[in-house]
Nucleic acid binder design. Structure first.
Length: 1128
RNA sequence: GGGCUUGUAGCUCAGGUGGUUAGAGCGCUACACUGAUAAUGUAGAGGUCCGUGGUUCGAGUCCACGCAAGCCCA
């Protein structure tokens, strides 16, 4: 017959390899899904990783987290399809290709064709797929790797196009503009990545102006706003203040015109504009030209008091006038008092903050219409003012007699020096300076000075960049803001704060989704437009594209489809070659943009199934997701795009439960990076520790949503403490089960109710563990579950149950009690295999195989893997609360006795007569009595004596029950508790007898009940006492002759057992013992406890002789004994 | 600059709705156990609960303001 396999040493990595092999050979993953055909679905969405880099240890975290709930739900009877996926587009791939080819974006289309470039991207992006698949398998992440979705495939892109078309049809896709870094010298926008190139930010000295904006309806009153880009002032359309900041109105004189003015600025900024020395000067003493300008505060405001104030346009240029609510004061959360005036000038076209604020406030910006009727800013793409401003400035120069290094006409006002004019020319004046002089002359400038700051420059031309509105396609997410917020409230976020905080706030401040990317490798925007932009078409499928191309071919705009005779590929450059026909018969060209890659991944619920073109049934059964998990850094990435698309197009959430996990840092809490060399190689770690300890460590050490300080020592600890203990427990079981030829058979098992108390107790504990694990997992809390399993295994099962039940396993022939012990331990181990299978899938299956092999051999029908079984629910009938309480007392009391023995230096092998335990009530007494045999044998004590009130030696103490009394008495609690603390025996007896005690409180009588106080036993005079956990124990330390003898006998047994072991005897071998005579005490001990010694050591005889030849001298601590042990 | 998270023993972490002696594991020290044995048990030392104010009879817990670290965004 098969035996339970025993293992001297466990090779955890090998278990990983072997079980993986077993799964592969027997298709276990596939079976775990197929088995549940027709069952309720549990849907999981895989957030696609990009395979253009090697996976790191943090991917083990993310993928484990994804895996465990899918496995758990499978056991619970759901069908869990898990389609893998790959994210293939986007900037990182492009950058990697450019680096490898040694080219820049400029070279695309010149040194390398778009076709070749994209081909290179396609090859690069899957370069490390093999490593990823390898890791995925090795860590036991069950996901379908054979049929993953890949975002660059035509079918996937077609689904994206159909979604975009739906948005387009709903009017949610529009062309607008956004403020982006722009290089007029190069004529191109710059990505944030390009802006982050070293050397782009330079220290420059610019002319800064504090301008005076005249307040309407108040005489001579001006709001001061500071800017380092005076050229944006003609485009001003609002001023921003900080609502919580303090502002003042100051009466003073303009330092250039010397006219009396009232100016408004932040109180904290007065020092930068006004000299306190001038406070001594009377306003009336001021004469034009004086250096010191007197001033006085005439009014103070909070920022919010200024909201809505109207002012006159600074540059009243014909054609640039604006209707209300332009030229008003608004709030901006970015306004500070660190520089400037605490009031910020806003120009919609030239600042991202400005743009956002003004859009939110519904305030128009300064724009003019071009020939096609489009709104354009007053600065063109060369960085030059349009004539409408140029003429005004030229006229003002003439009016104020301003001369410059050259004659400046309407078309000569560049906002920065983009013409390489000679700045060393003494007469050189840039546009900012000219504007400053005009404003000074017109009593509109309060201060003009050079200001040194850092400003970004184009990495290619070295010229300063402008923030400039560039055309972009947007999804009008703001139109659905309220619905998206509402839907979010139905999502179960782990942790909750990410949902309400980070994600919730993001939704509350939603702006339209900028979809455009000026790149080459990505999903093309399927919109074709006529050159004048009056006609456009959004293509929603390949079929539609073919249809439209056919029209175009027949019209002669195209000669043939670019896909003629080859596989369809919806990437650039092919789609760019497609020219379509407009309804009016005009040529339409594709908008050159690609779309944000986040749209790719956010659309995966649909595109992974090529919905709506195929698989409608699968899609419907698997939407929305029950569960997703990804890093918290994805909050505004994948989590948002999933949510936005689902909310806007399907009026649904995309996922019901989500875990946003934290980062994996190194053990010192630093970010891991290859550069710093502190990155942990997942493959190396797997080779060393195997997958299970790694997974278990990551889940149990900290909540997944907290950052994990990854420490290999932690993995080793989990392996030793948890897996090691479990393995020891299994080995213990296997060792004896095999000796007794025990095979677990549920049909023949001893009913739980007939088993020993200890058995019933651990079974009861096991039911609690099952419920606890279930509750934690249903709440997506894996850390709680793993910790509960670990505590049960180590503290309850191994360190208590096995320790106390040990003797039942090794003594005598198999009988009902022994069988019950085997069955109990087996059931615990088998349950643990299932409970831990989601977290440690390899080890759990291995344990399961070891446990079930002999049963299967005996003809029992069992699932071939722990992952193919059904969840075993907890049986509430098996939970014995009283028994658990009793056992808890046994554990606590044992612990106290141990500590007393230690204090009295009495080793456990020395039997003692008795302990005294004060009991305050019958219930506690009964609970202890229930387990007193256990306690006695555990701590080697003959007797337990209970003492209660009748004994006369019990001393009780009393404490107030603060929780209860606090609510009742509040501030008077101190008096009440002082009174209770002063109680003696009399008062305690009184309240115990009567149930009530009347207390005088400031002349008022209040009644205290037994509930209001906590009574505990305190001390037993004259005894060695220990007290904790609400229990007190006193130990009788007197050693009688008999106890001493028994101690000697036990010591001898111990020494002989050691000898047996040294001799290499098997457990069942018999021996004979010869002992040399010693003193009377020892001789009597040998005589009186002969039977005991023989039974314990399996000795057939015990002879005590005058001397023993070639015996072993045993060290018995206080004396030596010569003994000879021989095998029979 | 804004939003969010975290801060408890040397290390990793627990500490529903506030309740008086703040816990666990590891590590350290000492002792014990020895047929689970490259295992195990018991005890001990170790704390400014990040800081400062506040609310309260009472704050690790609630509030405000800071500090430090991290993520995302600008």
């Amino acid at each position: 017959m098969k035996k339970y396999q025993e293992f001297k040493q466990v090779d955890y990595p090998k278990i990983g390899v072997d079980i993986l092999q077993f799964w592969k050979e027997n298709d276990i993953f596939k079976k775990s899904v197929d088995n549940r055909e027709g069952f309720e679905t549990f849907t999981f969405f895989e957030g696609p990783p990009s395979a253009n880099g090697t996976p790191g240890i943090h991917h083990v975290m993310a993928r484990t987290l994804k895996d465990i709930f899918c496995r758990y739900k499978t056991l619970k009877g759901f069908q869990v399809k898990r389609k893998g996926g790959w994210d293939t587009h986007g900037l990182p791939v492009e950058l990697q290709v450019e680096k490898e080819l040694g080219i820049t974006k400029e070279d695309i289309g010149k040194k390398i064709s778009v076709e070749e470039y994209n081909q290179k991207c396609r090859e690069t992006v899957m370069r490390f797929k093999h490593e990823w698949d390898d890791l995925t398998e090795k860590i036991g992440y069950w996901v379908d790797l054979d049929d993953p979705y890949i975002t660059f495939e035509p079918k996937y892109i077609e689904s994206l196009w159909s979604l975009l078309r739906k948005l387009y049809d709903k009017g949610l896709l529009y062309k607008g503009y956004t403020i982006q870094p722009f290089s007029p010298a190069a004529g191109t926008g710059l990505s944030s990545h390009e802006l982050n190139q070293p050397g782009t930010y330079k220290d420059v000295k610019d002319t800064s102006i504090t301008a005076q904006f005249k307040v309407k309806g108040q005489d001579n009153t001006y709001i001061l706003a500071w800017t380092t880009t005076p050229w944006t002032l003609p485009s001003n359309s609002a001023l921003a203040i900080g609502e919580k900041l303090d502002y003042v109105k100051v009466r003073t004189f303009n330092p250039y015109t010397f006219e009396p003015v009232n100016v408004i600025l932040a109180k904290a900024r007065m020092g930068a504009y006004l000299n306190p020395k001038a406070l001594e000067i009377a306003m009336s003493d001021f004469k034009a030209g004086d250096k010191l300008i007197p001033y006085e505060i005439i009014e103070e405001y909070k920022g919010k008091d200024l909201l809505g104030w109207e002012y006159e346009q600074l540059f009243p240029i014909e054609g640039l006038a604006l209707p209300n609510p332009a030229f008003t004061v608004v709030a901006g959360d970015y306004v500070t008092t660190e520089d400037g005036t605490g009031i910020v000038h806003l120009a919609k076209a030239f600042g991202a903050d400005d743009f956002r604020t003004l859009v939110q406030q519904n305030i128009p910006g300064v724009f003019v219409k071009d020939d096609l009727g489009n709104e354009i800013p007053v600065v063109d793409r060369q960085g030059k003012f349009l004539p409408v401003v140029g003429e005004y400035l030229a006229a003002k120069m003439k009016e104020h007699g301003i001369s410059a290094h050259k004659e400046l006409g309407a078309n000569d006002f560049y906002v920065k020096n983009y013409l390489e004019d000679d700045e060393s020319n003494k007469e050189y004046k840039n546009t900012d300076v000219i504007i400053s002089i005009i404003l000074k002359n017109e009593n509109k400038a309060f201060k003009v000075e050079k200001y040194e700051h850092t400003y970004p420059h184009c990495w290619r031309t070295d010229k300063p960049i402008l923030y400039y509105p560039l055309e972009s396609w947007f999804i009008k997410t703001t139109a659905y803001k309220d619905r998206l917020v509402e839907l979010n409230k139905t999502i179960n976020w782990k942790p909750e704060a990410t949902g309400t905080g980070r994600f919730g706030n993001w939704l509350e401040n939603l702006v339209d989704w900028n979809l455009s990317r000026s790149r080459f490798w990505g999903t093309p925007l399927p919109i074709w437009r006529t050159a004048d932009g009056t006609e456009e078409k959004c293509i929603g499928s390949i079929a539609e594209l073919n249809e439209e191309m056919a029209k175009s071919i027949s019209k002669g705009f195209m000669t043939a489809s670019p896909f003629e005779g080859k596989e369809i590929d919806l990437h650039r450059p092919y789609v760019d070659d497609v020219v379509l026909v407009s309804p009016k018969g005009e040529k339409m060209f594709r908008e050159p943009d690609l779309i944000d890659v986040w749209f790719d991944s956010g659309a995966m619920p649909y595109a992974q199934w090529h919905y709506p073109f195929e698989n409608e049934d699968i899609f419907k059964a698997n939407y929305p997701a029950d569960y997703i998990a990804e890093g918290v850094d994805q909050t505004r990435g994948w989590f948002f795009t999933l949510h936005a698309i689902a909310g806007m197009l399907f009026d649904s959430v995309a996922f019901k439960n989500v875990i946003a996990n934290g980062l994996v840092l190194d053990k010192n809490g630093n970010k891991m990076s290859k550069r710093l060399g502190n990155a942990v190689d997942p493959f190396k770690t797997l080779n060393e520790y195997g997958p299970d300890a790694l997974r278990w460590y990551m889940l149990s050490n900290a909540n997944p949503w907290d950052n994990l300080k990854f420490n290999l020592e932690g993995v080793a600890e989990v392996q030793r403490r948890f897996f090691g203990t479990l393995q020891n427990t299994y080995n213990f079981f296997a060792l004896y089960a095999n000796l007794d030829h025990f095979v677990y058979d549920p049909a023949k098992k001893v009913p739980i109710i007939e088993r020993a108390e200890l058995d019933q107790w651990i079974i009861s504990k096991l039911q609690s563990l099952i419920s606890e694990t279930e509750a934690a997992m249903d709440n997506y809390d894996a850390t709680k579950a793993t910790r509960a399993i670990m505590n049960f295994t180590v503290d309850q099962l191994s360190n208590w149950y096995v320790r106390l039940a040990r003797k039942r396993f090794w003594r005598g022939e198999i009988n009902k009690d022994k069988q019950a012990a085997y069955e109990t331990l087996y059931e615990c181990l088998a349950s643990l295999a299932q409970l831990m299978s989601s977290f440690a899938p390899f080890y759990a299956d291995w344990l399961y195989q070891n446990l079930t092999e002999s049963s299967r051999e005996a003809g029992q029908v069992l699932p071939e893997s722990v992952h193919l079984g059904d969840w075993n629910d907890a049986d509430p009938n098996l939970i014995k609360e009283d028994l658990e309480a009793s056992m808890q007392l046994a554990q606590d009391i044992s612990s106290l006795v141990h500590s007393l023995r230690k204090k009295e230096k009495l080793k456990v092998r020395q039997p003692l007569q008795k302990v005294l335990i004060p009991v305050l009530n019958e219930k506690t007494k009964a609970q202890i009595q229930h387990v007193d045999d256990l306690i006695k044998s555990e701590v080697n004590i003959k007797d337990i004596e209970y003492i209660d009130d009748t004994s006369g030696i019990l001393v009780k103490s009393v404490k107030p029950n603060f929780a209860l009394l606090g609510k009742r008495f509040g501030p008077k609690l101190k008096q009440v508790s002082a009174a209770i603390n002063a109680w003696g025996k009399e008062e305690i007896t009184a309240i115990e007898k009567e149930g009530t005690y009347y207390l005088d409180l400031d002349g008022e009588t209040v009644a205290l009940t037994l509930e209001d106080v906590l009574i505990s036993s305190q001390d037993i005079p004259g005894w060695s006492v220990a007290s904790d956990y609400g229990v007190t124990v006193a130990l009788d330390v007197t050693l009688t002759e008999e106890l001493k003898q028994e101690g000697i006998a036990r010591d001898l047994v111990n020494r002989i057992q050691n000898l047996r072991k040294d001799m290499g005897l098997e457990v069942q071998d018999k021996i004979t013992i010869k002992v040399a005579k010693h003193d009377d005490m020892v001789n009597s001990a040998l005589e009186n406890f002969a039977t005991y010694i023989q039974t314990e050591t399996q000795a057939l005889s015990l002879e005590v002789n005058g001397s023993v030849s070639d015996g072993t001298k045993l060290d018995m601590d206080d004396f030596e004994l010569t003994v000879k042990v021989e095998k029979v």
